[in-house]
Amino acid sequence: MIRVLLTVLAVSTALTGIAGAASPVDERVVHDVAAQLRCVVCQNLSVADSPSETANQMRQIIRERLAAGESPEQVRAYFVQKYGQWILLSPPKEGFNLLVWVVPFVGLGAGLVLVAVVLRRWSRKPAAVPPTPVDPAMRERIRREMSGGPRP
């Protein structure tokens, strides 16, 4: 009995193994690759999000290439080879493209520095106001009144 069970187990394991090898491509991987590629007939849509026929065919091509054993990086590289880097929705972090990645942070930093400088200037302003000149007659009158002398 145990032997039969073991045989069944072994056979089913083997079958699962075969089924696993021949199983269709993981749709999450297809979606992941498609989401990085620009739909060529759309405005700012990825191949994953576009309902167009072109995007549909591209998703199928991604699926076929993954099924043929290519890695997601290889599939991506195939599209870059055919369309150039334009096909990538996020430009690679190199060369001229670095501007896109760096400028927002540089801008943010510059903005913070500007705000800090302006705030400091504002808080210092009252101290920087020069004392109003007081003429000698007024000075004398203040001195008299402060000392509690007789009023005229």
Binding site: V40, V41, Q60, I61
Partner: peptide, 13 residues
Amino acid sequence: PKGHVAVDYGVYG
């Protein structure tokens, strides 16, 4: 029919 040649040539439209 499957767009293979079009993608191989990087056809946009």
